[in-house]
Amino acid sequence: MKSAVVVFPGINRERDMMLALETVTGSKPVSVWHTETELPKVDLVVVPGGFSYGDYLRCGAIAARSPIMQDIRAKALKGLKVLGVCNGFQIITEAGLLPGVLVRNKDLRFVCRQVKLKVENNQTFFTNRMQKGAIVSCPVAHGEGNYICDAETLKRLEAENRVVFRYAEGTNPNGALNDIAGIMNESGSVIGMMPHPENMIEPLHGRTDCRPLFESLLAA
């Protein structure tokens, strides 16, 4: 499984993501700088977490318009797997790869804590090693993870089974609509999520709940 991790100035969880990908899938991802215009040949592109461009203007807005995103958008439409986590989710949403938008947490504060995530769709490249309906622990660390979209979009996301992860057991940390923690595009090639599965894969992290997500990449 060949993967690439895209780095913009201000991204800061690229090391965490690369470590998780390498630890679980066994192959080291390549790092791609935002000024590149073409991705290397890979099976998966990850846009990691952080504060690209300081989250100035809007989270993810400036990164979404950088050169490499043009190529990512084009290839995602042809089926390249794209995973956006936290700021990465904000970036790919701003880039139009996923519908809706992530706005400030309901209580206006940054929040870093463990939440419960329910796997709503286990037929994706990131969840195929999980049971449908399984509930796992996973940390969040964000100030703007409150997912919103218009009623029509929400209806479609739900009807088409495109909500991949939902906050469970009353742990919604940000006020997201329908407890949405992660969604995918129509074809399933693009997944975005706010929580950080890369920080929950080894005993040091307290639990290893999110390891199967990365193991899913090997099967996909």
């Binding site: 800061n12 969880r13 090391r15 965490d16 470590l19 998780a20 504060r109 940054f110 929040v111 870093c112 804590r113 940390p139 660390a141 950080h196 890369e198 920080n199 040091l204 992290h205």
Partner: peptide, 24 residues
């Protein structure tokens, strides 16, 4: 401390609330 990212780096072995913070 929930307003502080205590996990970035993937090396945090003890978050706030104990006797000391621990990083690998």
């Amino acid at each position: 401390w929930e307003q502080y990212d205590s996990l970035i780096g993937s090396n945090t072995a003890q978050i706030p609330g104990g006797d000391a913070g621990v990083v690998r």
